[in-house]
C-alpha cells in the first residue's frame, strides 16, 4: 500500500521539476531503490501505472536501479554485501557495522520533452 503514497509524492516532485524546466511531457524517470528502503520495486512499478494518469508523466517510463546492501565493519573495517536480515560483517561476524549502501530511495533523474 505505501508504494502508492510514495509514488504520488514522487509524481508531485517530478511535475515540479518538469514545470521548472518547461517540459511538455516527461519521458523517463530514473530511481534508485535500495533493498533496505522498505519499498518493493515491482509494487512501485504497479503503483506508478495508476498514479501517473493525468500527469505530465502519463506516458513516462519508470527505470528502477536496485541496489545491494553493503555494510562496513566497525571492528575490522571490511566492507561486505549482505542479506537484508543479516547485517553482520561477512569477514569477522561482528554486528557493529554501518550500512553504507542499501537504504537509498532516490529520484535520480528525468528525461523530458521540451
Amino acid at each position: 500500500m505505501h508504494e502508492l503514497s510514495i509514488c504520488q509524492g514522487l509524481l508531485r516532485q517530478v511535475e515540479k521539476v518538469a514545470a521548472e524546466n518547461n517540459a511538455k511531457t516527461v519521458e523517463l524517470i530514473r530511481l534508485r531503490v535500495g533493498a533496505l528502503s522498505g519499498v518493493e520495486p515491482p509494487l512501485l512499478e504497479r503503483a506508478f501505472e495508476i498514479a501517473r494518469a493525468g500527469t505530465l508523466a502519463a506516458e513516462a517510463e519508470l527505470e528502477i536501479e536496485e541496489g545491494p546492501v553493503v555494510v562496513k565493519c566497525q571492528e575490522c573495517g571490511a566492507s561486505s554485501a549482505v542479506p537484508v536480515n543479516n547485517l553482520v560483517c561477512q569477514y569477522c561476524g561482528e554486528w557493529r557495522v554501518n550500512v553504507t549502501e542499501g537504504e537509498e530511495l532516490l529520484l535520480l533523474s528525468l528525461e523530458i520533452e521540451t
Binding site: 510514495i6 509524492g9 516532485q13 524546466n21 530511495l105 532516490l106 529520484l107 533523474s109 528525461e111 520533452e113
Partner: peptide, 20 residues
C-alpha cells in the same frame, strides 16, 4: 541540464522520494 540530439533533455534531480 543535458540536451540530447533528439530534443529530449535529461535532468539530474537526486532527491529523496520521501522528500515531501
Amino acid at each position: 541540464l543535458e540536451h540530447t540530439s533528439d530534443g529530449t533533455a535529461s535532468i539530474e534531480v537526486l532527491s529523496s522520494l520521501l522528500h515531501e
